[in-house]
Design a protein around this nucleic acid. Structure first.
Length: 710
DNA sequence: CAGTGAGCGAGCTTCCGCTTGACTT
């Protein structure tokens, strides 16, 4: 007797195979086996949106294996993921094998107990869930394959649009517009240094206080209120979630700042009017953050290791295959109870009871459309350290594993406790209020292994009602900052929050809009190109009902209704397609879009009639004659550095001796065919010097030339 | 480790989400 169990991933197949023993054969489908055809629409819009599914090309071998195993199996058990994609995969496999009533099991964690329990009560395939997936697939196909050709007609060939990528592009374009619109504001803050007058107390406590600042410059206090009115300094800049806010402050001219500065100084001298009005102490607790999901792992790997989403997933894939971590494409923060307990035991053993969370910590999904087919990303064994992973797979793998390990283990550790102190000072009897904040870590708790940049800022022991000595009042000029551009971390975070894309696609969304030439990376931040602006503006102007966040949210609600059985999938698709088709039909009369060019002062060396302009092509920005197509001159746009080429630019051999070389070569920034940045010589191809890293060239720089009479 | 690209118009491009392996750095 032989039972066939079908899952999606080969690693999962191996694990389950171990639990089930010799009576079971476990085979992986490697994802979807049926899909819409690649080169045609594959959806019959005239007849109930009938999807023309076909076998996925490179799945032939997998399907043969499945068929062969199914022939001799007594039981066929479909154990694909429990979300709507998994249900569709199960359904397609059942169809392909001709076993429509095959058993369907689902489990939330890969443990022997969970699988045995699922096997004891098999179910049937949930057709409503399958239908929800069909609707999702058909909608995405209709949007993508109907909209993209419009772009080929109206903008440029080879471009693409889609429910997900177009929204991601729109976010980046809209942020760029905010940056263009931004006008900086100047504002001033005022810091008053005060010291305690009670010198005796100071000496007695000196060893405990151990603050150099105290003796030299006093304690810095911020001016927070003038005559009872709060000074709003509300500049919140969070590079990771892109949240930004600036409110104008009351001290918005230098003149005003200097007046206040002088007034504060006189309060100090004449009235000795600095009195501690209150000392507030508060104990605050910080709880550890939840374990990683795909999104949060990619965000942290980008921030802390500078990795792209794509690279993070490559590393995680290997860690998963080698058995170090749980599955890396997940939106769940829950953990198997056995694993949680193992981590808690580890904490108790390694750090002691004190560091263990008083209650076991469980985490729940906060994302609205989380499907939770898998666990959170966590180490499979709490005892395996990152050094072992580094030794086995390499340092980058080790570092990523370390992030995952720390984050997961920390979830079972105690809260960190800090004592924060606020000292309020009244100056000039109600004229000004000053404030100093301090905070001291009382107990590190989970911070022991998951450290944040948490700096102790210890304040001297101020006593309410005591008078303080004035040392100085200094105004400081500030400029408000423009909203930040998106980077790998912040765009992934935003996409997930808005319910755009899935864990298996976050990294590829960015790759797609980058490879289409819609955005460019500049020091890790995303900037739209002229093509990106053109495509986005065209879509927003003509298809705003598809190209926005509410559309995805609405779609998810509708798909849920299909999955619940309260709506049928065909009317849901129809409800969307009818108005969409109208928009498509109205496209005939819409004019072609012009892609913006950037003017330069350089004359065209070929026709001598026009100026060169910067255009965005398939491979990025380049220079061409503004009179195109009358003049076809082009040349690459190179970004120069201030370094000279170590091979032909060192002056060792005079330029005249080197054929084809015009003077000393400069180092210029170039890109390989695959898009990787490198540094080459401006005299290429006469000089073929090239390097990956700027530092390698810097070492070989000649001494700067001495200017005579300078 | 690298010189293209826009437009013309043969025949072609294009979506999202599930999975790895065959490529390369």
């Amino acid at each position: 007797m032989k039972n066939l169990v079908i899952v999606e991933s080969p690693t999962k197949a191996r694990t389950i195979g171990r639990f089930l023993g010799a009576d079971f054969e476990v085979i992986a489908s490697m994802g979807h086996i049926y899909d819409l055809p690649k080169s045609t629409l594959g959806v019959d819009t005239q007849h109930n949106f009938d999807p023309q599914y076909e076998l996925v090309k490179d799945k032939k071998k997998t399907i043969d294996t499945l068929k062969k195993a199914a022939k001799t199996a007594d039981r066929i058990i479909l154990a694909t993921d429990l979300d709507r994609e998994g249900e569709a995969i199960a359904y397609h496999i059942a169809q392909n094998l001709g076993k429509k009533d095959a058993e369907r099991i689902v489990f939330h964690e890969i443990t022997k107990e969970a699988i045995d329990e699922a096997l004891a009560s098999p179910k049937k395939i949930n057709q409503d869930l399958v239908d929800a997936q069909t609707a999702r697939r058909v909608l995405d196909r209709l949007v993508g394959y109907k909209l993209s050709p419009i772009l080929w007609q109206k903008v440029r060939r080879g471009l693409s649009a889609g429910r997900v990528q177009s929204v991601a592009l729109r976010l980046i374009v809209e942020r760029e517009r905010e940056i263009e619109k931004f006008r900086k504001e100047n504002y001033w803050t005022i810091i008053v240094s005060l010291s305690t007058t009670n010198k005796q107390r100071l000496t007695a406590k000196k060893s405990e206080i151990s603050s150099e600042r105290l003796e030299v410059g006093g304690t810095p206090f911020d001016l927070t209120e003038i005559k009872g009115e709060k000074i709003e300094i509300n500049e919140k800049l969070d590079l990771y979630d892109g949240q930004y806010k600036f409110t104008k402050t009351t001290i918005d001219t230098e003149k005003r700042a200097k007046e206040i500065e002088a007034d504060l100084a006189s309060q100090g001298d004449a009235l000795r009017g600095y009195v501690v009005s209150d000392v507030l102490k508060k104990e605050t607790r910080r709880t550890p953050p939840p374990p990683y999901t795909t999104s949060t792992l990619q965000q942290d790997a980008a921030r802390r290791m500078g990795l792209s989403g794509k690279r993070t997933m490559q590393l995680a894939q290997k860690l998963y295959e080698e058995g170090y971590i749980t599955y890396h494409r997940t939106d769940s923060v829950s953990m198997a109870e056995a694993a949680r307990k193992q981590m808690a035991d580890y904490v108790k053993k390694e750090f002691g009871e004190k560091y263990l969370s008083t209650k076991p910590r469980y985490y729940k999904a906060t994302q609205k459309n989380a499907q939770e087919a898998h666990e959170a990303i966590r180490p499979t064994k709490a005892s395996i350290q990152h050094e072992a992973v580094s030794a086995e797979l390499g340092p980058q793998f080790g570092r990523l594993y370390e992030l995952i390990w720390r984050r997961a283990i920390a979830t079972q550790m105690a809260d960190a406790i800090t004592e924060s102190t606020s000292v309020l000072v009244d100056a000039g009897k109600g004229a000004y209020t000053l404030k100093a904040n301090g905070s001291v870590l009382v107990f590190e708790g989970f911070l022991k292994i998951n450290p944040y940049a948490l700096e102790d800022k210890r304040l001297p022991d101020f006593i309410a009602k005591e008078s303080l000595d004035f040392i100085s009042a200094l105004s400081e000029a500030h400029e408000s900052l423009p909203p930040p551009r998106y980077n790998d971390a912040s765009i992934i975070k935003t996409l997930e929050e808005k319910g755009i894309g899935r864990p298996s696609t976050y990294a590829t969304i960015i790759s797609t809009i980058e490879s289409r030439g819609y955005i460019e990376r500049e020091e890790g931040k995303f900037k739209p190109t002229s093509v990106g602006f053109a495509v986005n503006d065209f879509l927003v102007a003509n298809f705003s009902s598809v190209d926005d966040i509410p559309f995805t949210a609405l779609m998810e609600d509708e798909l849920d209704a299909v999955a619940n059985g309260t709506k049928k999938w065909v009317p849901v698709v129809e409800e969307f397609y009818t108005p969409f088709e109208k928009l498509l039909n109205g496209m005939k009369d819409v004019a072609r879009v012009k892609i913006a060019v950037e003017e330069t002062d350089e004359d065209c060396p070929e026709c001598k009639k026009g100026n060169l302009v910067i255009r965005t092509g398939r491979f990025g920005r380049f220079l061409s004659c503004g009179r195109f197509p009358d003049c076809k001159f082009t040349k690459p746009l190179v970004q120069e550095t201030n370094l000279t080429c170590p091979k032909c630019g060192d002056g060792a051999s005079p330029p005249s001796l080197r054929s084809g070389v015009s003077g000393r070569g400069k180092i210029v920034i170039k890109k390989t065919r695959r898009g990787r940045k490198f540094y080459g010589c401006s005299n290429y191809p006469a000089c073929t010097f090239a390097a990956w890293k700027l530092e390698d060239i810097k070492k070989e720089q000649p001494a700067p030339e001495v200017q005579p009479n300078a």
